[in-house]
Design a protein around this nucleic acid. Structure first.
Lengths: 156, 156, 156, 156
DNA sequence: TATGAATGAGCATTCATTCAT
DNA sequence: CATGAATGAATGCTCATTCAT
């Protein structure tokens, strides 16, 4: 595909990266929401929250490069757009946390906003470390250990 | 300060950013190491690990902008340098985790490498979120809640 | 032509200038070598050596500006490249000088290295003077007089 | 001497280089003119013309660097000044040539303007080659061979 | 007189974007 | 629809010059 062809389908480079992110996050969120319809256990929900995200990025190195490397070089205007796109996923994390608290599985004293950063930050750091090594090992093999730590952080 | 002035003190733009990071991490690590000489409780060590880092960035918005925003736009060569600079801090995290496991405070089954990403990823995400809001609230007020989550994630 | 366009065809500004020189000298040398195949008289060879060089620069003011003005502002690294490019032409001068001495046309006591500087220096000075006047007169009209001086300098 | 001190004595960098040249050429011209008062042989005059110039540059590498390298990077305005400064030396060359023709030593058919380029071009090329090798050999050792070639170029 | 830290105009180069084909 | 050569705004850096001390 030639350089110029991109501009037939996207407004600019920003639009390309944003679209890739929006598409990926959209699928992740849709898949998780679908699953949540039939899943009520907060811990299994949290496990699913992490595994779908890891699967999507862990099986698509280029996508991971976009989200963990290229999108980090964005300016303020773009960062706002990124925020808008990720918000639904943040919403799912918040939902799981509140649900877990409500159901007496997670500690009621945790602040969902801070716990959300724990969850997303841990995932993000794990994926970035994996990308920067050149995706040499299997990211999916870390899911259980990551979820175990997150669950312990919040559960009663 | 004029454009050219910076080149009297730094080799290039990369050198400016790297020097700022190296200086800050150096101070953080030195301060923590000093404290660790008289502190043996892994949980209080972890608290200190987080608070010194938060204090350094939370009281210097420009430093936080450099570490959370500007340094993220770096190329591969620079990322390796950044890795070298942060490694001592990673070493401190690892030390606390191993020490906590040895002393029977943290669960022996946790993988320190993954737990390190939990610790650093949570801190990083928390600080980035703070910077992106324009540092409108006090970052230091989050220390106890962040540490509480991290401790629960790992303790027996 | 826009600033950036040149970088589609050349590595950098140095490459532009060097390529122009290499191309010109390459043509000059090829033309002279071709002629030398059927020419055995050293004096006529010397005449041809000068006239091809003068013709190339004397009919292309921009080329002359590059060789006599722009390429003189080069740094040490570039000067070495220039030396490598001009060497074949120097080789032709040396060939003519040695050939002339062998054939008993030029004085055997002349040092070819110094005589080469006489030949090239005279040509260079003549062309530079012409360029600096704005190429207001016909350079080619000087060929016979220049060659006459050079021949007398060396012949028995 | 500090950077700024230069500007107490010279208008700008151009002025520094120009002054160095003017001073050197001035001394060379004065010395030659002095000698010419008691010398009437055109060939010995030519020899003196070359040797004083070679001596001045050949015993002061920095001066040679200025005249052969630094002054070549000048712009049009500066080149005119350089021309004005060298003109007296050109005048001496012209004088010797005309004198030699008048006295029947040099061939009457030579054009002094072109012969001047032969003389100056050969000297210039010889000195530049010497500077570019790092002044590793003794320039003065070439005087006799250079003058011999120049004399043969022009004498009857 | 002398200093040298600070200056900022100038320039080579890059790269996201355009547009004639 | 697709191309890719051409574009030129943006930027990192240099270096001759200035000026407060």
């Amino acid at each position: 595909m030639a350089d110029g062809t991109v501009y037939l389908y996207f407004k600019n480079k920003e639009d390309v990266l944003i679209s890739i992110l929006a598409d990926a996050i959209g699928r992740v969120v849709a898949e998780i929401e679908e699953r949540f319809k039939t899943e009520s256990d907060p811990i299994r929900k949290l496990h699913y929250l992490v595994s779908v995200y890891f699967e999507k990025l862990g099986t698509d190195k280029n996508l991971a490069l976009v989200t963990q490397i290229h999108l980090r070089q964005s300016d303020q205007a773009m960062r706002r757009q990124i925020g808008d796109i990720i918000r639904p996923y943040y919403g799912l994390i918040d939902h799981v946390l509140r649900d877990g608290i409500e159901k007496g599985v997670f500690r009621p004293e945790i602040d969902p906003r801070i716990a959300r950063r724990l969850v997303f930050g841990t995932m993000d750091e794990t994926i970035t470390a994996w990308v920067l090594t050149g995706a040499k090992y299997n990211l999916l093999g870390l899911i259980d250990q990551v979820v175990d730590l997150l669950v312990h952080a919040m559960k009663k």
